[in-house]
Nucleic acid binder design. Structure first.
Length: 418
RNA sequence: GUGGGUAUAGCUCAGUUGGAUAGAGCGCAGGAUUGUGGCUCCUGAGGCCGUGGGUUCAAACCCCAUUACCCACCCCA
């Protein structure tokens, strides 16, 4: 017995129908906000992620599915979507067109991690990216889009957290202040955090360790150390959010795990999810395009974990409408009738009537039961008698009423009945 | 990479201090209804008790190892 690799999942019916549902709702929202789909390769040259996401991040350090192809080039299964979309934007010179450019994507991502609730090695994200504008109103639009999506799915009790993590002008100074503070309180930090002080001090803010929390609570906040440009941007974002009645909470410890973020960072969480409670998160990345392709193109976006979205829907007992039913079930008795019915079956389908037949040679009772389970509107019963008389018995499965209908005109008759 | 938990029928799970022919509900198939679903009743199929060792007269149960899954740390979607 060969199993699916660890951290991967089969998406089977009826679960797959849920995926279709939430994807179709997402596409409705994307269209409403005028975002167009982009599809990029599932693997890229490894350098793209190394440079884009950042060498010091966990993703690049230990979570990538990297392999060599036959020519010896190093390739990597995409661990996230943004780097690829930026690469594509640059490679196809989309910056030459009128800006901004608004994309959405849906697809699988890959990270080598230990699976747990809401985390898998192959997982699915849908996300949006907007290029070519620094207008903080777009930051608000992107957040609004995400919240609108949550809304249309009927989700409640979600928390939006926002923060600004500055830019290359102000962040270094803040990092100095932070590092100094952390060093002064080093004794109260956990071992991991002690290491982080030099490696990535921002990450200390994210630590859940109790003793670290005490230190973090009084740590200098980056929003108090923003340069004027970043501060204006952040204030404007907040004004825009208030304008459109989106509730948010400032979270000075929200730093995000990828290096490319600048200014706006945000996450939307649902507390009932367990340890992995972020449904979607994102932010602004004004330096990413420069990092990847030496072109100064601002961008902002978010990524949403589809599995986590489904988990949330589940936790909140939101049932997804799945209409599993058929119009006609053909019940047959004997091979002759089965052959004649098979012809009929295709005639129904050619007319767009959803029809099914029994292939298991079940008893009539079994076939009726099967029709019932499939939620058939009508059952058409054809046996020796019907073939001789040229009339089929048609049973209304709701009320049990039956009528005889000539086989010659049955498709047209039923077309009118449903 | 590190901890903790779980593993018995297709699914959800019982199975006492070690002593059966390893059970139930649901699902599936057939029948009661010579060609008619839902409700009811009856019958049936389906198990190497995760895998490999060990202890014992005797192991689903005890011990060791191993694998898989789940949860958590780390980090994120």
């Amino acid at each position: 017995m060969i199993n699916a690799p660890r951290g991967t999942n089969d998406i089977l019916p009826p679960e797959s129908a849920k995926w279709n549902y939430i994807e179709s709702k997402a596409k409705y929202i994307f269209d409403l906000y005028n975002y167009d789909e982009i599809r990029t390769p599932i693997f890229e040259y490894t350098e793209l992620f190394q440079r884009g996401i950042g060498e010091a991040t966990d993703i690049v350090e230990k979570e990538m599915y990297t392999f060599e192809d036959k020519s010896g080039r190093s390739l990597t299964l995409r661990p996230e979507g943004t780097a690829s979309v930026v690469r594509s934007f640059l490679e196809n010179k989309i910056y030459g067109k009128a800006q901004p450019t608004k994309y959405f994507y849906i697809g699988p991502m890959f990270r080598y991690e230990r699976p747990q609730a809401g985390r898998y090695r192959q997982f699915y994200q849908l996300g949006v990216e907007v290029f070519g504008t620094q207008d903080p109103m777009v930051d608000a639009e992107v957040i609004a889009l995400g919240m609108a999506y949550m809304d249309i799915l009927g989700l409640k009790d979600l928390q939006l957290y926002i923060n600004s993590i500055g830019c290359p002008d102000c962040r270094p100074q803040y990092l100095e202040t932070l590092t100094e503070y952390l060093n002064n309180n080093k004794d109260d930090l956990c071992d991991d955090c002690k290491n982080r002080i030099d490696k990535n001090p921002l990450r200390v803010l994210d630590c859940k360790n109790d003793s670290c929390q005490c230190v973090i609570k009084n740590a200098p906040k980056i929003i108090d150390h923003l340069c004027e440009e970043c501060e204006v941007h952040f204030n404007s974002l907040q004004k825009n959010l208030k304008n459109i009645n989106i509730d948010y909470e400032l979270d000075p410890t929200l730093v995000r795990g990828l290096d490319y973020y600048t200014k706006t960072a945000f996450e939307v969480k649902y507390e009932g999810l367990g340890a992995q409670d972020t449904i979607f998160g994102g932010g602004r990345y004004d330096k990413l395009a420069d990092e990847i392709g030496s072109k100064d193109i601002p961008g902002i976006g978010f990524a949403l974990g589809i599995e986590r979205l489904l988990l949330t829907l589940d936790k909140q007992d939101i049932d997804i409408p799945i209409d599993k039913s058929i119009d006609i079930y053909l019940t047959t008795i004997g091979l002759k009738a089965k052959n004649a019915s098979f012809e009929l079956l295709e005639k129904f389908r050619k007319k767009g009537i959803k029809a099914e037949i029994d292939y298991q040679d079940r008893s009539v009772g079994g076939q009726m039961k099967s029709a019932d389970r499939m939620n058939a509107t009508y059952t058409v019963i054809i046996g020796e008698n019907e073939l001789e008389s040229g009339k089929a018995t048609v049973r209304n499965m709701k009320n049990g009423e039956e009528q005889e209908i000539k086989l010659q005109s049955i498709v047209e008759r039923i077309e009118k009945m449903i």
